[in-house]
């Protein structure tokens, strides 16, 4: 049931190349997930072929720009907009850019680091967390 999981760490500039190669081999994009680490955003791209996962990992310093793979995998648009809206990662070359309106959150980039310089106009109001913990 638990497939061995490897996270293939790659450099940002090889992402598109790798994505293209995976697409040619008949992979589909399963998900893109991001994790905010203290000074970088860790991005995980999961691809699937015949129920086998291949994961690519990118480490993106806070505020660095991410190239979009939406030209290769069309459905990446949603994930990339999500990464932008929640983590404040600016994405270049989005096929459909919601311009920060994909998620209508109360604060900009709720999951991102507060230190990140934001490309969006509401850069002045980033908050560490959108989720108010239920506490009296």
């Amino acid at each position: 049931m638990n497939q061995p999981q490897a996270f293939d760490v790659i450099a940002v500039d090889t992402l598109l190349e790798r994505a293209r190669a995976l697409r040619e081999q008949g992979f589909r994009l399963v998900q893109i997930s991001a994790t905010q680490l203290p000074d970088q955003v860790e991005l995980t791209y999961s691809f699937d072929r015949d129920s086998r996962l291949t994961n690519l990992r990118l480490n993106l310093p806070n505020g660095a720009r991410l190239p979009s793979i939406s030209g290769v995998f069309g459905c990446a648009v949603l994930y990339e907009n999500e990464v932008h809206d929640l983590f404040g990662v600016p994405v270049d070359g989005l096929a459909i850019d919601f311009k920060g309106n994909f998620y209508k959150t109360a604060v900009k980039f709720p999951f991102g680091s507060t230190k990140a310089p934001c490309a969006a106009p509401a850069a002045g109001a980033p908050a560490p967390c959108a989720v108010e913990e239920v506490k009296k």
Partner: peptide, 13 residues
């Protein structure tokens, strides 16, 4: 389309 009306941030929780 536009979605994101009820984003709850459960992932952050």
């Amino acid at each position: 389309p536009s979605i994101g009306f009820i984003h709850r941030g459960l992932e952050k929780l």
